[in-house]
Amino acid sequence: MSISRREFIQQMLSLGVSAAVVAAALSILDCSSQPFPGPGSDNTTPPPPPPPPPGDAAYLAVARGESPRAMVEAALAALGGIERFVRPGNDVIIKPNICVSFRTPEYAATTNPEVVGALVALCLGAGAGRVRVMDNPFSGSAEEAYPTSGIEEAVRSAGGEMEVMAGMKYQDTAIPYGQKISHWPIYRDILETDVVIDVPIAKHHGLARLTLGMKNLLGVVTNPGALHTDMPQKLTDLATLVRPHLTVIDGVRILMNNGPSGGSLSDVKMANTVIASHDIVAADAYAATLFDLQGEDIGAIRAAAHRGLGTMDLDAIKIEEIPVGA
């Protein structure tokens, strides 16, 4: 079969035009995904502070004891029960720290599996519709890290699900209160779900000195390495947008040195503590005391407190300390 020159040109033209139309349509779709305004560097409006706790519930609860499960339950009870945060049918995301795929829980590089399991069970007990647990390790894949950390088994047996964070869900998102960063690719589900529970393990960190609740939020963005220069301000910017409803700090085993991945049991200290608060800054500030530091000493805590994201003045809030018998 042969075609005339005219037919050939017609076909090529129509092909070209349709390709251009498809490309244009796609690029329009692409533009619509960038909702952020200009750079927010002169943004001085403070973000809203955390709401006061209801009734006589504690602002911050500290449980001490041997059993991680009992400590989590006691701390939550002091805050007014998990029902204060989780309503029936809610979609809950729990964000532990599963930073690497090569450390088992006793090295205190990843959040205590029992702490995470206990939280899953509490949420489901309060009628949560779905409880997902996720993190994005910086070394190794989530598929490997989840079982190694022991968290996968704890979550599954408590009835929750582990989610491997999917590339398509990171979407460039405006950070309206951001001063250093005005937008960043953030995991969509973290922003859209009903309840986010931040469950870091308290660890030493070379730059931040400690990695706690705010630093743990780096697990929900892409390219966290780029947030390391001027980290306190950038972490605070991120925390103005990603605001966990509840922060539970695992201080069962804490890593005193060579963080964040550790590797030597001599760096691990049994602190047998669980700290919980709706105020991420207060929880972080209290956790600093496990290392004989103050909130003031940690750049991110100081910056976030100055920005009004929470308080690091532990004398000004109602703290309930609960000993949990063996």
């Binding site: 070394s139 070379g206 390391h228 220069t229 001027d230 980290m231 590797g263 030597s264």
Partner: peptide
């Protein structure tokens, strides 16, 4: 290197080092 050349904190390399006795010290 950002800290050496620009006087800004960074230490990503040290944080990432997987060795128990980190091969990067600050």
């Amino acid at each position: 290197c950002i800290p050496w050349a620009n006087g800004l904190n960074c230490i990503v390399c040290q944080e990432m080092c997987p060795l128990t006795e980190k091969a990067i010290e600050l």
